[in-house]
Structure formats: C-alpha cells, structure tokens
Design a protein around this nucleic acid. Structure first.
Length: 478
RNA sequence: GGCGCCGUAGCCAAGUGGUAAGGCAGAGGUCUGCAAAACCUCCAUUCGGCGGUUCGACUCCGCCCGGCGCCUCCA
C-alpha cells in the first residue's frame, strides 16, 4: 500500500512517489505574520503536521519547510500604524504562531524562512525572468510577470486566463500593466514602504518583492527547483500558487511541484471565519477558556482535510471526552497485571487489524477520520477483551497493545499532547495523594459524607477518582 | 458568469455497486457505599428530493431543492 494524495494539478488521487526514493521535499505556505493566527489557520497547519508525521511514520526522510511572510501590504500597514519597521512589527506574531503550533503538538518544520531574508535571491530571480523575456518593468516602476509569455498559465486553478477582464473585480490601479492578468514580481517602493523599512535597492530602483515571489524563491533556495509536495489553504490555489508555478517554471524550465495539496477552510459554528466578520478564535483563546489542546487537535483532525469541517464549542467538548477515553485506555493498559503464564488473547490480532486499517485510512489521502475510527475500534475491542478476562496478561501482549496505541498516536498526536497538558508537579501530586489517603480513612469508617466532600474538592481541581478493588486511583482530566 | 465542493442518526463524521465505521450525547443493565472507568443491550429498514441504469445504489447517470468555497495579497 502506498500513500495516495489528491493533486490539485490533476484533480485526481495519485500514488505518491517522491522524486528521489526515500526522501521527500515539502513546502507549506505559512502564515502572514501581521496578526495572531486563528483556529482556521491551524486547520491547515494541522494537516501539514499530519502529512509531516505520516511521511516520517512510513519511513521517509522528510525535509519540511514552512515560510513566514513578513513583507506584504498588511505587515507594512501594521508597521506604519505602530511606528515601527516590519521586522519589529512582525516578530511577536511569528513567535505567537510558533508558540501556538507548539501548543497543538505540531512538529517543527526544519526551517521557517522569512521573506525579508531572501530579498537578494528574489532580485536575482526577477532578473532571471526578465532575461528570459518573462518579465518587464512598467511605467509605474514595478516589474510584472508576463502571463502571455507563459502558455500553461491556469493549469492549476483551471481559470481561463483569457477570460479575466478588467472590471469590478480587478482594481483600477492596474493600468500600468501591459495585460491586466499580469502580476507584480517587484513593486516600486511607496513612501509607506520606506517608512516601514520594507524597501530595498534593486536594478529597478527601490522596491519590495511581490507576494508570490517569496514562496518560489524560498522553496527553490531551500529545497531545489522541483519539490515533491507543496501545501496550502484552498484560497491559495488562485492566484498565489498559479503565479508561483508561472514564475518558477518560467525561470527554471522544470516542473515546480509534483503534488499540490490544498486544505479546505474550516467553518466556525457553521460560519465562515474571517477577520472582517470578527468571529476569529485563536488557540490562546481556547486554551485560556480551559480547553485541552489535545481536544483542539482532535477536532481539527476529525474530518478529512478536503471535507468541510465545522469547528464548534460543542464539538470541542465531545473531542475532549474522546481524548480522555484514549488517556484512560492507555492508563488501563499500563496498570494491567502481568503474568508469564497468562493465556493467549486476541489482542495481537486486534492490534494488527487496527494498524492495517489505520494505515489504509491514512494512505487514502490522509483520511484522519477513518484512521481515528481504526484507533477507537481497537480501544473498544481491547477494553472488552480485558473485561472478559478479568485477569493478568502476558507482558508481550500488553506491550504489543501499548505499542499499537503509541504507533497510531505517533501520527495523530493526541496522547502525546494529553500527557503534556496533564503533567503535575511533585507538590501537587503529594497533595492529591494526601487527599486520597484522607478519603480512604473516611471510607473505612463509612464516613461517606466526608469521603464525598474530598472527592468533590479534588474534582474541582480537575482530579477524578476511581475506586477499585485494588484501591483508589486518581487521574487528571481537562 | 467561470472553477469547484457538500447534503449520512440529536451533534460531529467514515463508507462510495452487495445491503450503514467511529466519536459525543441519550435509554436500560453489570460493577460501586454512591460515583468514576469499563463492559453488555438499545439508539438511521435508511443515507436532501424525484426519476433512470443495474439482479442489486447511500454508492453510477440526469434533473430538482438546500448549503458552501475560490475567482479580492483570508490557511
């Protein structure tokens, strides 16, 4: 079985084969760091993470690059409004993005290039295009890409380039271009750009790079002229990625990207989330309201990435309980008594079947919903088996079950995150132990009122007790 | 107008030609001092509607209804 990915270029599911066997080059369009990233942005980045993890899981050596866009209209506007330059203005938003990614258990990319660090390479790139007759400087001082000179323009988005006409949707300041469809590679500096420190010297005078240019230049600089996979939100298909292809293939004469993967935008409480609607929610907002990052992760992966996903608070609660079920299951396995002469169980077959179904789901265009179903079926089956036996397990069987669980979680990342968010310091643990001990004493004397009061007190601190014949266990819930 | 997506139980969401995964919620039961966790049983004769193809369709085709995305430097 091999991974099949939906390639936007062909609009088909294709078997994934990297250019160089065993090695995968991935570039994911990152955030424009002019504001706090919201949960919608993180659906995309979560899918990047899912792909990143899965590629490594199946044994590829992966080089993963995600850029940070620090020069564009919005960062310049923000810098000017704050009386700073763009580097200073964007810094905290870049940090916030990385911090939120860390909170959600997203594996770091190998590198997070910033556009402003690649201006020189971008200038070279534009020069290269100009030499090939694919770019020209217009009267307004800006340099544009000549779409007419690139016949394949439109192959990704399937927009009929010839049909785009100036009008309501094409702004009137495009007059300087030879063709309305042409897009800016290099923008002549305006006063505002200089003020924000977003202007550089170039053969065409002071100016700044166009938005599309950075991704072509950074990905080619970091990964080479042909990438295996390029990721992005669905909104980037046109014009951003279409323009990247035109520039890159125009300059190199080689295929730019072999598999284009686009993530569908999520809905928030059934509505499109956007800054203009004012209904954005950040990871920080959710965490400060007490939501478990593992639950956020769960909900973001609860639907396959090309399907509609409606992110809701109700759904988040449900996800939190689903994650807790996994946490409880793992704890149950860990505390299962072991015995070398325990009989056989069906757990090894269950584990094998679960892993097979999990992999099938993931291979099918990263169907995380299906992969999660495989995991939960496994939990159901093993729990039932454990209940039936009511005894010890041989170590290999128990460890095999834990291994299967960990394997699946290496891709999904729920337990990994849940463990992190449930960790307690020594003093707190000691306090809990003491409370549990006090309650046990109370129960011995059948002072249930006192026992229940202690249990309620602990519950208020997120600690839940479970009485069993072997004594009282406690756990942290989020 | 151009390109494209979706409509499966109370909510979320798989399946995509052979008779409906999984999560959450709900009902009853086992266990428990009571709980919690776990398990057992139940919870869509049915997959937006109407036609068609087929031995057979949620799955393929057509039409209709409903919801949505991109076409604006929003992931």
């Amino acid at each position: 079985m091999t991974l099949r990915l939906h390639n936007t270029l062909t609009r088909r599911l294709e078997e994934f084969q990297p250019l160089e066997p065993g090695k995968v080059l991935v570039y994911g369009c990152g955030p424009t760091i002019y504001d706090l990233p919201h949960i919608g942005n993180f659906r995309s980045f979560m899918v990047y993470d899912l792909l990143h993890r899965y590629l490594e899981w199946v044994g590829y050596e992966v080089r993963f690059i995600t850029n940070l866009t620090d020069v564009d209209d919005k960062t310049i506007r923000g810098a000017v409004d704050h009386g700073t330059d763009i580097r200073e203005f964007t810094e905290p938003f870049g940090e916030a993005f990385l911090a939120d990614a860390e909170t959600l258990g997203i594996r770091p990319a190998d590198h997070y290039p910033k556009a402003t660090d690649y201006v020189e390479a971008m200038v070279d790139f534009v020069r290269r295009l100009q030499e090939k007759g694919l770019a020209y400087q217009a009267e307004d001082g800006s340099v544009y890409f000549s779409i007419g000179a690139f016949p394949e323009y439109g192959k990704l988005s399937r927009v009929d380039a010839g049909a785009i006409k100036p009008g309501a949707r094409v702004s009137m300041d495009d007059y300087a271009k030879e063709d309305v469809r042409d897009f800016a590679l290099w923008k002549a500096a305006k006063a505002e750009d200089e003020e924000a420190g977003a202007a550089w010297d170039s053969p065409w005078g002071r100016g700044r790079p166009g938005w599309h240019l950075e991704c072509s230049v950074m990905s080619i600089s970091e990964l080479g002229e042909t990438l295996d996979i390029h990721l992005g939100g669905e909104d980037l298909i046109f014009p951003h990625h279409e323009d990247e292809i035109a520039q890159s293939e125009g300059a190199t004469g080689k295929p730019f990207v072999r598999y284009w993967v686009h993530v569908k935008h999520l809905l928030l409480e059934g509505q499109k989330m956007s800054k203009s609607l004012g209904n954005t929610v950040s990871v920080g907002d959710l965490v400060s309201r007490g939501h478990d990052p593992a639950a956020i992760r769960h909900q973001l992966l609860s639907a396959q990435y090309r399907r509609e996903l409606n992110f809701t608070m109700e759904g988040l609660e449900a996800s939190g309980r689903a994650v807790q079920r996994l946490v409880d299951f793992e704890a149950r396995l860990v505390r299962t008594p072991l015995s070398s002469d325990a009989g056989d169980t069906r757990i090894p077959e269950m584990a094998q079947a679960a892993l097979a179904r999990f992999r099938e789901g993931m291979d099918d265009d990263l169907n995380s919903a299906e992969a999660m179903a495989a995991l939960f079926v496994f939990v159901n089956e093993v729990n039932a088996e454990l209940d039936r036996r009511q005894g010890a397990l041989r170590r290999e069987e128990r460890d095999g079950a834990l291994k299967a669980l960990e394997d699946m979680d290496e891709v999904l990342g729920f337990l990994e995150l849940a463990r992190r968010t449930r960790a307690l310091d020594r003093a707190t643990k000691d306090w809990i132990q003491e409370q549990v001990h006090q309650r046990m004493e109370a129960r011995k004397t059948r002072d249930f009122a006192r026992a229940d009061a202690i249990r309620d007190e602990l519950a208020a601190h997120g600690v839940v007790l479970e009485d069993s014949p072997q004594g009282t266990r406690w756990k942290v819930v989020k």
